[in-house]
């Protein structure tokens, strides 16, 4: 068992999408430093329940940092500021006794709040549906080794493909831009040979959809990269810009 902390929480409470919302304060007493941040919230919620109050609604699922469900801005930083760490993997030993911790949901027009800390990230799904795939039918494919992929390309594609779609990049960006997310997907698919035939179509469709969904644009501040729990590189945005530019020219749209 670790040390025990006493903390004050300021948590964003909002009953539904229409509600204007407010901060509410809670005491979190005797928080074990071995707890994860979300387990600390679990304990607070159990206390609220026992007092007959409604617990704080927040998203989480795998709690091992891979599903991308958890989403909260902790003391001003999405996922809480430990490098390469999602909120669910953030542990209380990162905090000190007596601290006040402020927790807010992701804020972006494209991610409307549904309740408390829960937001709707379906905009990401719609971007993916607009072109984030390689069009192959089940079964109609060549042998996996028929198309060699240079190790460097596969590795770089994997760097991009690691994105967990949590939306922290959008939450951190002063412009609520989704460029890092889209760039990661585009780069992954354009780095492997299987993705070449649809390359331009994909770039145009995904970028257009991204704009339609109401995300802001990139002003290269780098905050997305700084908070990304998978540490996805800003370089992929440059790759996306090139990809998009080339697609515009080749497809004759410009």
């Amino acid at each position: 068992m670790g040390k025990l902390l006493n903390l004050k929480l300021r948590v964003w409470r909002q009953d539904n999408a229409e509600d204007s919302g407010r901060f509410e304060e809670y005491d979190a007493k005797g928080v074990d430093t071995d707890m994860s941040f979300l387990e600390m919230l679990d304990v607070v919620n159990e206390d609220l329940l026992e007092d007959g109050k409604e617990p704080i609604a927040f998203d989480s699922d795998c709690r091992e940092g891979i599903c991308g469900t958890c989403s909260m801005v902790i003391n001003g930083t999405p996922h809480g500021g430990q490098k390469g760490t999602t909120a669910c993997q953030l542990h209380m030993r990162q905090f000190s006794d007596g601290m006040t911790i402020t927790i807010e949901p992701w804020r972006a027009s494209a991610f409307p709040v549904q309740r408390d800390l829960v937001v709707n990230r379906s905009a990401f799904d719609r971007i993916q549906q607009s072109g984030g795939f390689i069009s192959v039918r089940s079964g109609s494919v060549p042998d996996a080794n028929a198309t060699p992929v240079a190790k460097e390309d596969a590795d770089l594609a994997m760097d991009a493909a690691q994105c967990i779609g949590c939306g922290a990049c959008v939450a951190a960006c002063k412009n609520a831009s989704a460029m890092l997310f889209v760039a990661a997907k585009l780069s992954h698919l354009s780095l492997v040979p299987q993705g070449q035939p649809e390359r331009e179509r994909r770039a145009l469709a995904m970028v257009q959809k991204m704009d339609e969904e109401g995300f802001g644009s990139c002003t290269v501040t780098g905050s997305c990269e700084a908070v990304c729990p998978k540490e996805i590189s800003l370089d992929f945005i440059a790759r996306m810009n090139r990809e998009y530019g080339m697609a515009l020219i080749r497809k004759g749209t410009v």
């Binding site: 919302g21 801005v73 003391n75 001003g76 804020r107 494209a110 831009s177 995300f215």
Partner: peptide, 16 residues
Amino acid sequence: NKQAREVPYKSDVLPV
């Protein structure tokens, strides 16, 4: 870009 975040962050705390 302002439009992309119609509701701004409410907290004014300084992160760690």
